[in-house]
Nucleic acid binder design. Structure first.
Lengths: 148, 148
DNA sequence: TTTGCTGCAAATGCTTTGCATGTAG
DNA sequence: CTACATGCAAAGCATTTGCAGCAAA
């Protein structure tokens, strides 16, 4: 029915409404999304989809195990999820507006591998988060703050 | 009285028993410590110090504001605190035994600065966490697991 | 039919807070 | 004396879980 169906089946998950809808929210739009479980839950409510928050968490956890999404723990409590697109990248987070930009850097990747080796570790995973302030005038959160 | 007293005064904090004791726990030993609030709380109990867990959290938050300690959010819920020693460093965390090793790498630091600039950000802070498995036989948590 | 999914509500784990009392400066 | 600290208990937040009913394959 939906293109999401095959993605779910490929991941070995039953095709159910909550799963299709969560996947659609993550896929919607062109630019990469970094959404919390709560964000996704609210998006679903706005779409008129009655999906329980606990289910959103369960679905996201399953998606992560299946390699469909990646989970990131930025500073400040809640985790965010994004669609896995195969490419590895790190994140630059704006402390002012919360905007996230992805980047990847071969030099850093290589250094990390070297460091892990020299410390006698088998590198499994890593997270590199840069926090700063973007200089741009159209900092998204500025608008949001005026509203609040 | 204690050497900790002047550190506290310098930080503009009243010298109280909970603050002295928390500071002592963090300073004890030679190697850098990465302790959770709970860890510190238990250490205090073992020392026979009756300090409330809520107070430990408050003290650590104040220490962080004062620049006495640094807070890190590794994966898996709870935050850890370590004494600030002025030097910047990143962390390699063992997924098997939870052991933390510090390192710093000039090449990576320089790249991060470049990346932030090229993205139009003023870099404020960053966190680089490598996760892996240490190959060593004396993986601390192995012992702990046998006990449990 | 059978396995696995969902909603609901309650529980969890870490951390924060309100309030009355206590104490450093 | 006064401002700030503390203990205690309760609240808060993000996330997880038990359970009974439902639905996909």
């Amino acid at each position: 029915m939906f293109p999401e169906d095959s993605e779910l089946r490929r991941a070995g998950l039953k095709v159910t409404n909550p799963r299709i809808k969560v996947l659609q929210v993550l896929e919607k739009g062109d630019r990469p999304k970094h959404l919390s479980a709560e964000d996704i839950y609210r998006s679903l409510l706005e779409l008129g989809e009655e999906v329980n928050l606990a289910t959103v968490y369960r679905v996201l956890t399953q998606f992560e195990s299946a390699g469909l999404v990646e989970k990131h723990n930025f500073e400040g409590g809640h985790a965010v999820y994004e669609l896995a697109r195969g490419d590895h990248h790190d994140h630059m987070v704006c402390l002012t507006c919360g905007h996230v930009i992805e980047f990847s850097n071969a030099v850093i990747e290589k250094q990390q591998q070297k460091i892990a080796e020299s410390l006698g570790f088998l590198l499994h995973d890593h997270s590199l988060h840069l926090y700063g302030h973007c200089q741009k005038a159209n900092c998204e959160f500025k608008a949001a703050r005026v509203k609040a």
